[in-house]
Design a protein around this nucleic acid. Sequence first.
DNA 1: CGCTTCTTTGAATTTCGTCAAAAGGCGTGG
DNA 2: CCACGCCTTTTGACGAAATTCAAAGAAGCG
Lengths: 237, 237
Amino acid sequence: MYSTMDIALAPQTLAAMELFQGLAVSALETIAARTRVRRLSKDLRIFSQGDEEVRAHAVIEGGVRITQSGSDGAQVVIRFIGPGEMFGTVSLFTDGRYPADAITLAETLEASWSEAELLDLIHRHPQIGVNVIRIIGRRLQEVQERVRELATQRAERRVAHALLRLARQAGHSTIDGTAIEFPLRRKDVADISGTTLHTASRILTSWEKAGFLMTRDRRLTIRQPSEILRISEEAPD
Amino acid sequence: MYSTMDIALAPQTLAAMELFQGLAVSALETIAARTRVRRLSKDLRIFSQGDEEVRAHAVIEGGVRITQSGSDGAQVVIRFIGPGEMFGTVSLFTDGRYPADAITLAETLEASWSEAELLDLIHRHPQIGVNVIRIIGRRLQEVQERVRELATQRAERRVAHALLRLARQAGHSTIDGTAIEFPLRRKDVADISGTTLHTASRILTSWEKAGFLMTRDRRLTIRQPSEILRISEEAPD
DNA sequence: CGCTTCTTTGAATTTCGTCAAAAGGCGTGG
DNA sequence: CCACGCCTTTTGACGAAATTCAAAGAAGCG
Protein backbone atom coordinates (compact mmCIF):
# COMPACT_ATOMS: atom_id res chain seq x y z
CA MET A 1 0.00 0.00 0.00
CA TYR A 2 2.21 2.80 1.17
CA SER A 3 5.40 3.54 3.04
CA THR A 4 5.88 6.62 5.18
CA MET A 5 8.04 8.15 7.91
CA ASP A 6 11.46 7.56 6.53
CA ILE A 7 11.06 9.80 3.49
CA ALA A 8 13.15 12.96 3.62
CA LEU A 9 11.53 16.15 2.35
CA ALA A 10 13.80 18.91 1.05
CA PRO A 11 12.70 22.51 1.64
CA GLN A 12 13.18 23.26 -2.06
CA THR A 13 10.52 20.66 -2.83
CA LEU A 14 8.11 22.77 -0.80
CA ALA A 15 9.43 25.97 -2.38
CA ALA A 16 8.37 24.62 -5.77
CA MET A 17 4.75 24.44 -4.60
CA GLU A 18 2.55 27.45 -5.24
CA LEU A 19 1.04 26.84 -1.80
CA PHE A 20 4.31 27.91 -0.16
CA GLN A 21 5.36 30.65 -2.58
CA GLY A 22 6.98 33.64 -0.97
CA LEU A 23 8.07 31.96 2.25
CA ALA A 24 11.51 32.20 3.81
CA VAL A 25 13.74 29.12 3.72
CA SER A 26 13.66 28.93 7.51
CA ALA A 27 9.88 28.71 7.38
CA LEU A 28 10.04 26.00 4.73
CA GLU A 29 12.37 23.96 6.91
CA THR A 30 9.93 24.15 9.80
CA ILE A 31 7.08 23.15 7.53
CA ALA A 32 9.08 20.27 6.06
CA ALA A 33 9.51 18.84 9.52
CA ARG A 34 5.76 18.88 10.04
CA THR A 35 4.84 17.29 6.75
CA ARG A 36 3.72 13.72 6.40
CA VAL A 37 5.15 12.20 3.23
CA ARG A 38 3.97 8.90 1.80
CA ARG A 39 4.79 6.87 -1.25
CA LEU A 40 1.56 5.50 -2.64
CA SER A 41 0.98 2.71 -5.09
CA LYS A 42 -1.10 3.13 -8.21
CA ASP A 43 -4.91 3.04 -7.95
CA LEU A 44 -4.88 3.75 -4.24
CA ARG A 45 -7.79 5.67 -2.76
CA ILE A 46 -6.43 8.60 -0.73
CA PHE A 47 -9.80 9.78 0.49
CA SER A 48 -13.47 9.32 -0.28
CA GLN A 49 -16.34 11.71 -0.76
CA GLY A 50 -17.90 12.39 2.62
CA ASP A 51 -14.89 11.43 4.76
CA GLU A 52 -14.66 13.64 7.80
CA GLU A 53 -11.02 13.36 8.79
CA VAL A 54 -9.80 15.97 6.38
CA ARG A 55 -6.16 16.78 5.67
CA ALA A 56 -4.55 19.14 3.16
CA HIS A 57 -2.64 17.25 0.48
CA ALA A 58 -0.16 17.91 -2.30
CA VAL A 59 1.43 15.78 -5.00
CA ILE A 60 5.22 15.73 -5.19
CA GLU A 61 5.56 13.10 -7.90
CA GLY A 62 2.94 11.21 -9.86
CA GLY A 63 -0.69 12.19 -10.16
CA VAL A 64 -4.12 11.98 -8.58
CA ARG A 65 -7.60 11.87 -10.08
CA ILE A 66 -10.29 13.81 -8.23
CA THR A 67 -13.79 12.57 -9.03
CA GLN A 68 -17.22 13.46 -7.79
CA SER A 69 -20.21 11.14 -7.77
CA GLY A 70 -23.82 12.12 -7.47
CA SER A 71 -26.46 10.28 -5.52
CA ASP A 72 -27.43 8.67 -8.83
CA GLY A 73 -23.96 7.18 -9.29
CA ALA A 74 -22.95 9.30 -12.27
CA GLN A 75 -19.46 10.61 -11.89
CA VAL A 76 -17.23 13.27 -13.36
CA VAL A 77 -13.56 14.01 -13.03
CA ILE A 78 -13.24 17.30 -11.22
CA ARG A 79 -9.53 17.63 -11.87
CA PHE A 80 -6.25 15.83 -12.28
CA ILE A 81 -3.58 16.84 -9.81
CA GLY A 82 0.02 16.86 -10.99
CA PRO A 83 3.35 17.48 -9.23
CA GLY A 84 3.45 20.59 -7.08
CA GLU A 85 -0.32 20.96 -6.84
CA MET A 86 -2.42 20.82 -3.70
CA PHE A 87 -5.73 18.99 -3.35
CA GLY A 88 -8.41 18.23 -0.79
CA THR A 89 -7.70 21.51 0.94
CA VAL A 90 -10.91 23.43 0.42
CA SER A 91 -12.88 21.19 2.74
CA LEU A 92 -10.77 22.35 5.68
CA PHE A 93 -12.45 25.72 5.33
CA THR A 94 -15.96 24.75 4.39
CA ASP A 95 -17.78 21.86 6.01
CA GLY A 96 -14.94 19.58 7.04
CA ARG A 97 -15.80 16.72 4.70
CA TYR A 98 -14.23 15.89 1.39
CA PRO A 99 -16.54 16.70 -1.53
CA ALA A 100 -14.91 14.17 -3.87
CA ASP A 101 -12.80 11.03 -4.17
CA ALA A 102 -9.04 11.04 -4.73
CA ILE A 103 -7.31 8.10 -6.40
CA THR A 104 -3.68 7.81 -7.51
CA LEU A 105 -3.15 7.55 -11.27
CA ALA A 106 0.28 6.01 -10.90
CA GLU A 107 2.83 5.50 -8.16
CA THR A 108 2.77 8.81 -6.34
CA LEU A 109 4.72 10.71 -3.71
CA GLU A 110 2.24 12.63 -1.58
CA ALA A 111 2.65 15.25 1.13
CA SER A 112 -0.06 16.13 3.63
CA TRP A 113 -0.82 18.20 6.70
CA SER A 114 -3.53 17.85 9.31
CA GLU A 115 -6.21 20.48 9.60
CA ALA A 116 -4.73 21.85 12.82
CA GLU A 117 -1.26 22.02 11.34
CA LEU A 118 -2.32 23.88 8.21
CA LEU A 119 -4.45 26.36 10.13
CA ASP A 120 -1.55 26.98 12.48
CA LEU A 121 0.79 27.46 9.52
CA ILE A 122 -1.57 29.98 7.94
CA HIS A 123 -1.80 31.77 11.25
CA ARG A 124 1.97 32.03 11.46
CA HIS A 125 2.55 32.66 7.75
CA PRO A 126 -0.44 34.60 6.43
CA GLN A 127 1.09 34.45 2.97
CA ILE A 128 -0.01 30.82 2.82
CA GLY A 129 -3.60 31.97 3.22
CA VAL A 130 -3.23 34.38 0.33
CA ASN A 131 -1.69 31.59 -1.73
CA VAL A 132 -4.67 29.37 -0.96
CA ILE A 133 -7.04 32.08 -2.11
CA ARG A 134 -5.11 32.58 -5.33
CA ILE A 135 -4.98 28.85 -6.07
CA ILE A 136 -8.62 28.13 -5.43
CA GLY A 137 -9.62 31.40 -7.08
CA ARG A 138 -7.87 30.28 -10.24
CA ARG A 139 -9.51 26.87 -10.01
CA LEU A 140 -12.88 28.52 -9.55
CA GLN A 141 -12.34 30.43 -12.77
CA GLU A 142 -11.28 27.26 -14.58
CA VAL A 143 -14.33 25.35 -13.42
CA GLN A 144 -16.55 28.24 -14.48
CA GLU A 145 -15.04 28.02 -17.93
CA ARG A 146 -15.82 24.34 -18.00
CA VAL A 147 -19.42 25.15 -17.10
CA ARG A 148 -19.61 27.47 -20.06
CA GLU A 149 -18.10 24.88 -22.36
CA LEU A 150 -20.42 22.13 -21.15
CA ALA A 151 -23.42 24.37 -21.59
CA THR A 152 -22.59 25.73 -25.01
CA GLN A 153 -20.09 23.58 -26.89
CA ARG A 154 -20.17 20.29 -28.66
CA ALA A 155 -18.36 17.22 -27.49
CA GLU A 156 -15.41 17.49 -29.87
CA ARG A 157 -14.60 21.04 -28.83
CA ARG A 158 -14.87 20.10 -25.17
CA VAL A 159 -12.43 17.24 -25.57
CA ALA A 160 -10.03 19.58 -27.36
CA HIS A 161 -10.29 22.12 -24.54
CA ALA A 162 -9.77 19.41 -21.93
CA LEU A 163 -6.60 18.23 -23.66
CA LEU A 164 -5.23 21.74 -23.95
CA ARG A 165 -5.92 22.38 -20.28
CA LEU A 166 -4.17 19.16 -19.33
CA ALA A 167 -1.20 20.00 -21.53
CA ARG A 168 -0.90 23.41 -19.93
CA GLN A 169 -1.25 21.97 -16.45
CA ALA A 170 0.89 18.87 -16.67
CA GLY A 171 2.53 18.75 -20.08
CA HIS A 172 6.21 18.51 -20.84
CA SER A 173 7.92 18.74 -24.21
CA THR A 174 9.31 15.65 -25.82
CA ILE A 175 10.70 14.89 -29.22
CA ASP A 176 7.22 13.96 -30.45
CA GLY A 177 5.35 16.94 -29.02
CA THR A 178 3.76 17.81 -25.68
CA ALA A 179 3.25 14.77 -23.47
CA ILE A 180 0.86 14.72 -20.54
CA GLU A 181 2.54 13.52 -17.36
CA PHE A 182 0.09 10.96 -16.13
CA PRO A 183 -1.63 8.01 -17.76
CA LEU A 184 -5.19 8.63 -18.95
CA ARG A 185 -7.76 6.08 -20.02
CA ARG A 186 -10.39 6.97 -22.56
CA LYS A 187 -12.86 6.98 -19.72
CA ASP A 188 -10.81 9.62 -17.89
CA VAL A 189 -10.86 11.86 -20.92
CA ALA A 190 -14.60 11.29 -21.24
CA ASP A 191 -15.25 12.09 -17.58
CA ILE A 192 -13.28 15.31 -17.69
CA SER A 193 -14.81 16.41 -20.99
CA GLY A 194 -18.34 15.65 -19.90
CA THR A 195 -19.10 13.03 -22.51
CA THR A 196 -19.22 9.25 -22.73
CA LEU A 197 -16.44 6.75 -23.08
CA HIS A 198 -17.69 5.96 -26.57
CA THR A 199 -17.76 9.49 -27.88
CA ALA A 200 -14.34 10.20 -26.37
CA SER A 201 -12.93 7.07 -27.96
CA ARG A 202 -14.29 7.98 -31.38
CA ILE A 203 -12.88 11.49 -31.18
CA LEU A 204 -9.43 10.53 -29.91
CA THR A 205 -9.12 7.71 -32.40
CA SER A 206 -9.98 10.02 -35.26
CA TRP A 207 -7.35 12.48 -34.08
CA GLU A 208 -4.78 9.73 -33.85
CA LYS A 209 -5.57 8.74 -37.41
CA ALA A 210 -5.18 12.34 -38.49
CA GLY A 211 -1.80 12.44 -36.73
CA PHE A 212 -2.76 15.16 -34.24
CA LEU A 213 -1.86 13.03 -31.23
CA MET A 214 -0.62 9.66 -30.12
CA THR A 215 -1.29 7.36 -27.20
CA ARG A 216 1.34 5.05 -25.88
CA ASP A 217 0.82 3.09 -22.72
CA ARG A 218 -2.12 5.32 -21.68
CA ARG A 219 -0.03 8.46 -22.03
CA LEU A 220 -1.19 11.10 -24.48
CA THR A 221 1.19 13.14 -26.58
CA ILE A 222 -0.10 16.06 -28.57
CA ARG A 223 1.81 16.16 -31.84
CA GLN A 224 0.00 19.03 -33.51
CA PRO A 225 -1.22 21.47 -30.85
CA SER A 226 -2.25 23.92 -33.55
CA GLU A 227 -4.80 21.45 -34.90
CA ILE A 228 -6.24 20.74 -31.47
CA LEU A 229 -6.35 24.47 -30.84
CA ARG A 230 -8.15 25.01 -34.13
CA ILE A 231 -10.79 22.45 -33.20
CA SER A 232 -11.19 24.01 -29.76
CA GLU A 233 -12.01 27.32 -31.38
CA GLU A 234 -14.01 25.99 -34.27
CA ALA A 235 -17.32 27.67 -34.95
CA PRO A 236 -20.35 25.59 -33.94
CA ASP A 237 -21.17 24.92 -37.59
CA MET B 1 -27.44 55.87 -13.36
CA TYR B 2 -26.26 55.85 -9.79
CA SER B 3 -25.95 57.99 -6.74
CA THR B 4 -23.18 57.64 -4.18
CA MET B 5 -21.45 59.37 -1.28
CA ASP B 6 -24.36 60.41 0.84
CA ILE B 7 -25.49 56.88 1.65
CA ALA B 8 -24.93 55.89 5.26
CA LEU B 9 -23.75 52.36 5.97
CA ALA B 10 -24.58 50.81 9.31
CA PRO B 11 -22.01 48.43 10.84
CA GLN B 12 -24.75 45.84 11.31
CA THR B 13 -25.25 45.78 7.58
CA LEU B 14 -21.65 44.64 7.25
CA ALA B 15 -22.05 42.22 10.14
CA ALA B 16 -24.76 40.46 8.16
CA MET B 17 -22.27 39.70 5.39
CA GLU B 18 -20.39 36.43 5.57
CA LEU B 19 -17.32 38.31 4.35
CA PHE B 20 -17.12 40.14 7.68
CA GLN B 21 -18.23 37.35 10.01
CA GLY B 22 -16.39 37.21 13.27
CA LEU B 23 -15.20 40.81 13.37
CA ALA B 24 -15.51 43.18 16.30
CA VAL B 25 -17.97 46.06 16.03
CA SER B 26 -15.11 48.54 16.22
CA ALA B 27 -13.54 46.91 13.16
CA LEU B 28 -16.85 47.01 11.33
CA GLU B 29 -17.16 50.72 12.00
CA THR B 30 -13.74 51.35 10.52
CA ILE B 31 -14.61 49.27 7.49
CA ALA B 32 -17.95 51.02 7.04
CA ALA B 33 -16.14 54.32 6.78
CA ARG B 34 -13.96 52.96 3.99
CA THR B 35 -16.77 51.44 1.97
CA ARG B 36 -18.11 52.97 -1.21
CA VAL B 37 -21.87 52.55 -1.38
CA ARG B 38 -23.89 53.21 -4.51
CA ARG B 39 -27.52 52.94 -5.46
CA LEU B 40 -27.69 51.47 -8.95
CA SER B 41 -30.55 51.41 -11.41
CA LYS B 42 -31.80 48.21 -13.03
CA ASP B 43 -29.89 46.75 -15.97
CA LEU B 44 -26.73 48.67 -15.14
CA ARG B 45 -23.38 47.11 -16.01
CA ILE B 46 -21.16 47.15 -12.92
CA PHE B 47 -18.13 45.67 -14.63
CA SER B 48 -17.23 43.84 -17.80
CA GLN B 49 -15.22 40.74 -18.52
CA GLY B 50 -11.60 41.77 -18.96
CA ASP B 51 -11.78 45.08 -17.07
CA GLU B 52 -8.57 45.72 -15.19
CA GLU B 53 -9.62 48.15 -12.49
CA VAL B 54 -10.87 45.52 -10.12
CA ARG B 55 -12.73 46.16 -6.89
CA ALA B 56 -14.34 43.81 -4.38
CA HIS B 57 -18.14 44.15 -4.39
CA ALA B 58 -21.12 43.08 -2.33
CA VAL B 59 -24.87 43.41 -2.72
CA ILE B 60 -26.80 45.03 0.13
CA GLU B 61 -30.21 45.10 -1.52
CA GLY B 62 -31.34 43.88 -4.91
CA GLY B 63 -29.44 41.47 -7.13
CA VAL B 64 -26.72 41.07 -9.72
CA ARG B 65 -26.33 38.64 -12.60
CA ILE B 66 -22.80 37.39 -13.24
CA THR B 67 -22.36 36.10 -16.79
CA GLN B 68 -19.42 34.82 -18.74
CA SER B 69 -19.09 34.94 -22.51
CA GLY B 70 -16.75 32.92 -24.65
CA SER B 71 -14.89 34.18 -27.67
CA ASP B 72 -17.70 32.67 -29.73
CA GLY B 73 -20.33 34.80 -28.02
CA ALA B 74 -22.11 32.01 -26.20
CA GLN B 75 -22.83 32.95 -22.63
CA VAL B 76 -23.76 31.34 -19.34
CA VAL B 77 -24.87 32.73 -16.05
CA ILE B 78 -22.15 31.98 -13.54
CA ARG B 79 -24.22 33.01 -10.58
CA PHE B 80 -26.87 35.33 -9.26
CA ILE B 81 -25.77 37.47 -6.34
CA GLY B 82 -28.32 38.32 -3.68
CA PRO B 83 -28.27 40.50 -0.56
CA GLY B 84 -25.26 39.96 1.70
CA GLU B 85 -23.17 38.20 -0.93
CA MET B 86 -19.85 39.36 -2.33
CA PHE B 87 -18.86 39.25 -5.99
CA GLY B 88 -16.00 40.16 -8.30
CA THR B 89 -13.55 39.51 -5.50
CA VAL B 90 -11.60 36.55 -6.78
CA SER B 91 -9.91 38.56 -9.51
CA LEU B 92 -8.11 40.64 -6.86
CA PHE B 93 -6.11 37.55 -6.03
CA THR B 94 -5.61 36.00 -9.42
CA ASP B 95 -4.82 38.00 -12.52
CA GLY B 96 -6.38 41.37 -11.71
CA ARG B 97 -9.05 41.30 -14.38
CA TYR B 98 -12.69 40.42 -14.04
CA PRO B 99 -13.49 37.04 -15.57
CA ALA B 100 -17.16 37.87 -16.15
CA ASP B 101 -19.77 40.58 -16.58
CA ALA B 102 -21.92 41.91 -13.73
CA ILE B 103 -25.33 43.47 -14.43
CA THR B 104 -27.97 44.57 -11.95
CA LEU B 105 -31.20 42.58 -12.04
CA ALA B 106 -33.20 45.32 -10.38
CA GLU B 107 -32.51 48.50 -8.49
CA THR B 108 -29.62 47.56 -6.25
CA LEU B 109 -27.66 48.91 -3.32
CA GLU B 110 -24.03 47.92 -3.78
CA ALA B 111 -20.97 48.18 -1.53
CA SER B 112 -17.41 48.01 -2.83
CA TRP B 113 -13.78 48.33 -1.81
CA SER B 114 -10.69 49.00 -3.85
CA GLU B 115 -8.06 46.33 -4.20
CA ALA B 116 -5.66 48.18 -1.88
CA GLU B 117 -8.36 48.66 0.73
CA LEU B 118 -9.41 45.05 0.82
CA LEU B 119 -5.85 43.74 0.96
CA ASP B 120 -5.13 46.16 3.78
CA LEU B 121 -8.26 45.00 5.60
CA ILE B 122 -7.24 41.37 5.25
CA HIS B 123 -3.82 42.25 6.54
CA ARG B 124 -5.29 43.89 9.61
CA HIS B 125 -8.11 41.41 10.09
CA PRO B 126 -6.87 38.00 8.92
CA GLN B 127 -10.31 36.60 9.69
CA ILE B 128 -11.54 38.29 6.51
CA GLY B 129 -9.04 36.22 4.54
CA VAL B 130 -10.36 33.03 6.08
CA ASN B 131 -13.90 34.16 5.29
CA VAL B 132 -12.90 34.71 1.67
CA ILE B 133 -11.46 31.22 1.48
CA ARG B 134 -14.61 29.73 2.97
CA ILE B 135 -16.90 31.64 0.62
CA ILE B 136 -15.05 30.88 -2.57
CA GLY B 137 -14.39 27.33 -1.39
CA ARG B 138 -18.13 26.81 -1.07
CA ARG B 139 -18.71 28.36 -4.48
CA LEU B 140 -16.05 26.12 -5.96
CA GLN B 141 -17.93 23.11 -4.64
CA GLU B 142 -21.20 24.43 -6.02
CA VAL B 143 -19.74 25.01 -9.46
CA GLN B 144 -18.24 21.54 -9.42
CA GLU B 145 -21.68 20.17 -8.72
CA ARG B 146 -23.01 22.09 -11.68
CA VAL B 147 -20.29 20.55 -13.82
CA ARG B 148 -21.45 17.12 -12.79
CA GLU B 149 -25.05 17.98 -13.49
CA LEU B 150 -24.28 19.43 -16.90
CA ALA B 151 -22.22 16.40 -17.80
CA THR B 152 -24.65 13.76 -16.63
CA GLN B 153 -28.19 15.03 -16.25
CA ARG B 154 -30.96 15.98 -18.58
CA ALA B 155 -32.28 19.47 -19.05
CA GLU B 156 -35.36 19.09 -16.88
CA ARG B 157 -33.35 17.88 -13.89
CA ARG B 158 -30.84 20.66 -14.32
CA VAL B 159 -33.56 23.29 -14.34
CA ALA B 160 -35.02 21.75 -11.19
CA HIS B 161 -31.63 21.85 -9.48
CA ALA B 162 -31.05 25.42 -10.56
CA LEU B 163 -34.38 26.49 -9.08
CA LEU B 164 -33.70 24.71 -5.81
CA ARG B 165 -30.26 26.33 -5.57
CA LEU B 166 -31.79 29.73 -6.21
CA ALA B 167 -34.49 29.14 -3.63
CA ARG B 168 -31.89 28.15 -1.06
CA GLN B 169 -29.70 31.12 -1.91
CA ALA B 170 -32.24 33.88 -2.31
CA GLY B 171 -35.65 32.51 -1.46
CA HIS B 172 -38.08 33.82 1.11
CA SER B 173 -41.34 32.31 2.25
CA THR B 174 -44.60 33.83 1.17
CA ILE B 175 -48.18 32.77 1.43
CA ASP B 176 -47.90 31.01 -1.94
CA GLY B 177 -44.61 29.22 -1.32
CA THR B 178 -40.94 30.09 -1.66
CA ALA B 179 -40.36 33.17 -3.79
CA ILE B 180 -37.02 33.99 -5.36
CA GLU B 181 -35.91 37.53 -4.54
CA PHE B 182 -34.91 38.83 -7.93
CA PRO B 183 -36.67 38.88 -11.29
CA LEU B 184 -35.67 36.13 -13.72
CA ARG B 185 -36.40 35.94 -17.43
CA ARG B 186 -36.73 32.58 -19.11
CA LYS B 187 -33.37 33.26 -20.68
CA ASP B 188 -31.79 33.68 -17.25
CA VAL B 189 -33.10 30.32 -16.16
CA ALA B 190 -31.84 28.81 -19.39
CA ASP B 191 -28.38 30.32 -19.03
CA ILE B 192 -27.98 29.11 -15.47
CA SER B 193 -29.30 25.64 -16.27
CA GLY B 194 -27.16 25.24 -19.35
CA THR B 195 -29.95 24.90 -21.85
CA THR B 196 -31.73 27.10 -24.37
CA LEU B 197 -34.40 29.70 -23.87
CA HIS B 198 -36.85 27.45 -25.67
CA THR B 199 -36.27 24.36 -23.61
CA ALA B 200 -36.39 26.35 -20.39
CA SER B 201 -39.64 27.97 -21.46
CA ARG B 202 -41.24 24.63 -22.25
CA ILE B 203 -40.18 23.15 -18.92
CA LEU B 204 -41.24 26.10 -16.78
CA THR B 205 -44.54 26.45 -18.59
CA SER B 206 -45.31 22.79 -18.04
CA TRP B 207 -44.54 23.16 -14.35
CA GLU B 208 -46.78 26.18 -14.13
CA LYS B 209 -49.59 24.21 -15.72
CA ALA B 210 -49.02 21.43 -13.20
CA GLY B 211 -49.19 24.00 -10.40
CA PHE B 212 -45.62 23.42 -9.15
CA LEU B 213 -44.69 27.06 -9.53
CA MET B 214 -45.90 30.45 -10.65
CA THR B 215 -44.35 33.44 -12.34
CA ARG B 216 -45.60 36.92 -11.71
CA ASP B 217 -43.79 39.92 -13.03
CA ARG B 218 -40.66 37.87 -13.75
CA ARG B 219 -40.50 36.59 -10.17
CA LEU B 220 -40.68 32.87 -9.61
CA THR B 221 -42.51 31.32 -6.70
CA ILE B 222 -42.13 27.63 -6.00
CA ARG B 223 -45.48 26.36 -4.81
CA GLN B 224 -44.64 22.68 -4.49
CA PRO B 225 -40.97 22.29 -3.59
CA SER B 226 -41.48 18.57 -3.09
CA GLU B 227 -42.41 18.13 -6.74
CA ILE B 228 -39.42 20.12 -7.96
CA LEU B 229 -37.24 18.11 -5.61
CA ARG B 230 -38.69 14.89 -6.96
CA ILE B 231 -37.88 15.93 -10.51
CA SER B 232 -34.36 16.94 -9.49
CA GLU B 233 -33.78 13.43 -8.18
CA GLU B 234 -35.64 11.54 -10.83
CA ALA B 235 -33.87 8.58 -12.38
CA PRO B 236 -32.72 9.14 -15.96
CA ASP B 237 -35.49 6.88 -17.31
C1' DC C 1 -50.64 53.28 -29.28
C1' DG C 2 -46.68 51.59 -31.56
C1' DC C 3 -42.36 49.43 -30.73
C1' DT C 4 -39.28 46.50 -28.54
C1' DT C 5 -38.53 42.67 -25.68
C1' DC C 6 -39.92 38.45 -23.92
C1' DT C 7 -42.56 34.13 -24.19
C1' DT C 8 -44.88 30.37 -26.17
C1' DT C 9 -45.44 26.73 -29.38
C1' DG C 10 -44.78 23.74 -33.50
C1' DA C 11 -41.88 21.14 -36.71
C1' DA C 12 -37.52 19.58 -38.54
C1' DT C 13 -32.80 18.38 -37.75
C1' DT C 14 -28.88 16.63 -35.40
C1' DT C 15 -25.79 15.53 -32.05
C1' DC C 16 -24.84 12.30 -28.84
C1' DG C 17 -25.95 8.79 -25.68
C1' DT C 18 -27.46 3.99 -25.41
C1' DC C 19 -27.25 -0.74 -26.75
C1' DA C 20 -24.46 -4.35 -28.51
C1' DA C 21 -20.52 -6.90 -29.64
C1' DA C 22 -15.97 -7.91 -30.92
C1' DA C 23 -11.09 -7.27 -30.55
C1' DG C 24 -6.94 -5.96 -28.15
C1' DG C 25 -3.76 -5.88 -23.89
C1' DC C 26 -2.07 -7.19 -19.67
C1' DG C 27 -1.33 -9.78 -15.67
C1' DT C 28 -2.03 -14.02 -13.08
C1' DG C 29 -1.79 -18.56 -12.27
C1' DG C 30 -1.65 -23.13 -13.81
C1' DC D 1 5.15 -20.38 -21.47
C1' DC D 2 0.58 -20.51 -22.58
C1' DA D 3 -4.23 -19.94 -21.44
C1' DC D 4 -7.71 -17.75 -19.27
C1' DG D 5 -10.10 -13.77 -17.60
C1' DC D 6 -10.59 -9.00 -16.81
C1' DC D 7 -10.25 -4.38 -18.26
C1' DT D 8 -10.04 -1.23 -21.96
C1' DT D 9 -10.86 0.21 -26.56
C1' DT D 10 -13.00 0.27 -30.94
C1' DT D 11 -16.91 0.36 -34.02
C1' DG D 12 -21.67 0.00 -35.76
C1' DA D 13 -26.65 0.81 -35.51
C1' DC D 14 -30.40 3.01 -33.41
C1' DG D 15 -33.19 6.23 -30.89
C1' DA D 16 -34.27 10.06 -28.26
C1' DA D 17 -33.54 14.46 -26.07
C1' DA D 18 -32.65 19.00 -27.23
C1' DT D 19 -31.16 22.44 -30.27
C1' DT D 20 -32.35 24.94 -34.28
C1' DC D 21 -35.53 27.16 -37.28
C1' DA D 22 -39.71 29.70 -37.63
C1' DA D 23 -43.44 32.53 -36.29
C1' DA D 24 -47.11 34.24 -33.70
C1' DG D 25 -48.74 36.12 -29.19
C1' DA D 26 -48.19 38.68 -24.99
C1' DA D 27 -46.40 42.11 -22.17
C1' DG D 28 -43.92 46.12 -20.84
C1' DC D 29 -42.35 50.91 -21.99
C1' DG D 30 -41.98 55.37 -23.87
